[in-house]
């Protein structure tokens, strides 16, 4: 039984790269000594733009339960408008963390006792040299800063490996800019 596991649910839109982001974090966590890692996408019949999510479970031990996360420790939201479309914070553990890509200030977000971290990932990623709308490397930087469970350098290395033929330096820079641009709020 994995009592020490950390469960992270990633919400994005079809085509936005939430699964790739979760995969990058999975690889970096595994390289950092978490031998139990499972990134379990939930598939519907979604199209580009429709809400999608994936579950990432990490532990020091092997993961045996591959069912979707129902009690996440952390929820990562790649598009703040998803908050109005789907119950993306469903089941979040008490005192859990919500990571949001949003242009709005952190004071606009209040979730009953949860910690909140925001950054304007869309804008910062363009600043890093990525095309408009590519946010999945940037959101990893916000996740790293807010969660503190893994070194940013381990993540940027995994980002450069993932995007080896697709602007690796710009993607890693986006994660660094978003790490620095993260604003923490909610209950601390």
């Amino acid at each position: 039984m994995n009592n020490d596991s950390i469960e992270i649910r990633w919400h994005g839109r079809g085509g936005q790269g939430a699964i790739t982001a979760a995969k990058i974090v999975a690889k970096a966590m595994f390289a950092s000594g978490y031998s139990g890692v499972a990134m379990v996408p939930t598939f519907g019949t979604e199209r580009r733009g429709a809400p999608v999510f994936t579950s990432l479970k990490v532990s020091r031990e092997k993961i045996y339960d591959l069912s979707p996360t129902t009690r996440p420790d952390i929820v990562v939201i790649l598009d703040h408008l998803l908050l109005e479309e789907a119950d993306v914070t469903q089941g979040l553990k008490k005192g859990g963390l919500i990571v949001i890509n949003t242009p709005r200030a952190v004071k606009n977000y209040r979730f009953n006792g949860s910690r909140v971290a925001v950054a304007n990932v869309t804008e910062l990623s363009v600043k890093a040299g990525l095309p408009q709308g590519m946010v999945n490397s940037g959101i990893i930087g916000v996740f790293a800063k807010a969660s503190g469970i893994i070194e940013l350098s381990a993540l940027t290395q995994a980002i450069e490996e993932e995007f080896v033929r697709r602007k690796p330096r710009e993607n890693a820079l986006a994660a660094r800019l978003c790490y620095d641009g993260t604003i923490l709020g909610g209950r601390r």
């Binding site: 995969k23 999975a26 595994f30 031998s35 890692v37 499972a38 990134m39 379990v40 996408p41 598939f43 993961i63 591959l66």
Partner: peptide, 10 residues
């Protein structure tokens, strides 16, 4: 299908 085919694991 999906549970193993599409899940990333070491």
């Amino acid at each position: 299908g999906y549970i193993l085919s599409h899940t990333h694991m070491p």
